[in-house]
Amino acid sequence: MNSQVPMKTNWLYILLSLAAGPRHGSAIQDDARTLSEGAVRLWPATLYGSLEELLRLGWIEELQEHERPVGNSGRERFYRLTTGGRQTLEAECVRLEAVARKARARLSGLEVRA
């Protein structure tokens, strides 16, 4: 299993955002907030620090200028998930599903006390 799993919450939401396709920073911020129903807010320092870490790990990559969507301002940096990033995200999803199954099983066996 990957040494970074379980992963940081902000990394999880960044990777989930990029799983839907390339995005720039503010779109990732908005997507993370939506996906987490407002629970995760990626402030600029957290977002860009996390993006640098994910780039270093090889889980994401920056789009080259010629790959960026037409009509962008040219100032935005766009990122996409790499194959390794997708595999790591999938491993984290499997881990989270197992935790949720165990939690449901445990909770269904608990007695309700007044």
Score class of each variant (00 low, 15 high):
residue 66 H to G: 08
residue 35 L to Q: 06
residue 16 L to M: 14
residue 11 W to A: 02
residue 107 L to W: 05
residue 83 T to A: 15
residue 59 W to V: 00
residue 107 L to Y: 01
residue 22 P to I: 09
residue 72 N to Q: 15
residue 25 G to Q: 09
residue 52 E to G: 09
residue 46 T to S: 11
residue 45 A to Y: 07
residue 102 K to M: 12
residue 47 L to K: 10
residue 21 G to D: 08
residue 10 N to C: 07
residue 14 I to V: 08
residue 45 A to T: 13
residue 32 A to L: 03
residue 93 C to K: 08
residue 108 S to I: 06
residue 7 M to H: 02
residue 27 A to D: 14
residue 76 E to W: 00
residue 9 T to V: 13
residue 113 R to Y: 10
residue 46 T to Y: 01
residue 104 R to C: 08
residue 71 G to L: 12
residue 94 V to W: 00
residue 100 A to Q: 03
residue 90 E to I: 05
residue 100 A to G: 00
residue 32 A to W: 02
residue 106 R to T: 11
residue 112 V to C: 10
residue 70 V to S: 07
residue 34 T to C: 00
residue 109 G to Q: 12
residue 11 W to R: 09
residue 92 E to L: 03
residue 67 E to K: 05
residue 10 N to A: 04
residue 25 G to H: 06
residue 81 L to T: 07
residue 49 G to R: 11
residue 28 I to C: 05
residue 63 L to M: 13
residue 56 R to F: 14
residue 52 E to L: 00
residue 72 N to F: 12
residue 57 L to S: 01
residue 75 R to W: 10
residue 86 R to V: 02
residue 81 L to H: 04
residue 17 S to N: 08
residue 20 A to M: 09
residue 12 L to I: 00
residue 89 L to T: 11
residue 76 E to I: 08
residue 36 S to L: 10
residue 92 E to I: 02
residue 10 N to H: 10
residue 36 S to K: 03
residue 27 A to N: 07
residue 16 L to D: 00
residue 52 E to R: 13
residue 46 T to L: 06
residue 75 R to V: 11
residue 13 Y to D: 04
residue 77 R to K: 15
residue 89 L to P: 04
residue 52 E to P: 00
residue 8 K to M: 10
residue 72 N to R: 11
residue 50 S to T: 05
residue 36 S to T: 04
residue 68 R to I: 08
residue 18 L to Y: 04
residue 81 L to Q: 02
residue 39 A to C: 10
residue 31 D to W: 02
residue 29 Q to C: 07
residue 85 G to I: 09
residue 65 E to I: 12
residue 26 S to E: 14
residue 109 G to T: 04
residue 65 E to A: 07
residue 37 E to M: 07
residue 80 R to M: 06
residue 32 A to H: 09
residue 72 N to I: 10
residue 14 I to Y: 06
residue 33 R to V: 03
residue 36 S to M: 05
residue 36 S to E: 06
residue 16 L to T: 01
residue 58 G to E: 10
residue 108 S to H: 12
residue 48 Y to H: 10
residue 56 R to G: 08
residue 53 E to G: 00
residue 65 E to T: 15
residue 28 I to P: 01
residue 60 I to E: 00
residue 111 E to N: 09
residue 104 R to Y: 07
residue 66 H to I: 12
residue 60 I to V: 13
residue 12 L to M: 01
residue 39 A to T: 08
residue 48 Y to F: 15
residue 90 E to L: 12
residue 62 E to T: 15
residue 21 G to P: 02
residue 56 R to T: 05
